[in-house]
């Protein structure tokens, strides 16, 4: 058995893990799989006589998880001076205590 660690940047959550594992464990020659959405890496132990790393990579790509590709798209970018454009568009301009906070807190507010 040999071990292989592959970077899979697009595997950012555990529903991806289910897909990735299904794809890999179906592959002949793949023995064990540890797919981590936390570290976006997959640890595969496989029998090099039965399956080649290229095939493993292809399987991943076919399942929609290409190795080393697919960084999370960040839909919002800060300006050159690190200003978050949402500060202007969200338009939250609170200048006083929200009465709802006081009402809802009930007796818990009496510390």
């Amino acid at each position: 058995m040999e071990k292989l660690i592959l970077e899979v940047p697009s595997m950012y959550a555990d529903h991806h893990v289910l897909t990735v594992r299904d794809a890999l464990t179906d592959l002949k020659g793949v023995d064990e799989v540890y797919a981590s959405s936390t570290w976006k890496q997959v640890l595969i132990s496989y029998d090099p006589a039965k399956v080649k790393p290229k095939a493993i990579e292809k399987t991943l790509a076919d399942a929609g998880y290409p190795v080393g590709e697919g960084e999370t798209p960040i839909l919002v970018k800060a300006s050159a001076i690190k200003r978050d454009p949402k500060w202007e568009t969200l338009g939250v301009r609170t200048t006083k205590t929200n009465q709802i906070d006081i009402d809802m807190s009930g007796e818990h507010r009496r510390y």
């Binding site: 969200l90 939250v92 609170t94 200048t95 205590t97 906070d101």
Partner: peptide
């Protein structure tokens, strides 16, 4: 430096759009 702490932003910073407050 990181300036820009209007009172309004401080409120927002401590709870976001939904929960902004000075709590």
């Amino acid at each position: 430096m990181i300036p820009g702490f209007s009172h309004e932003y401080i409120n927002y910073a401590l709870g976001g759009y939904y929960r902004g407050s000075l709590r």
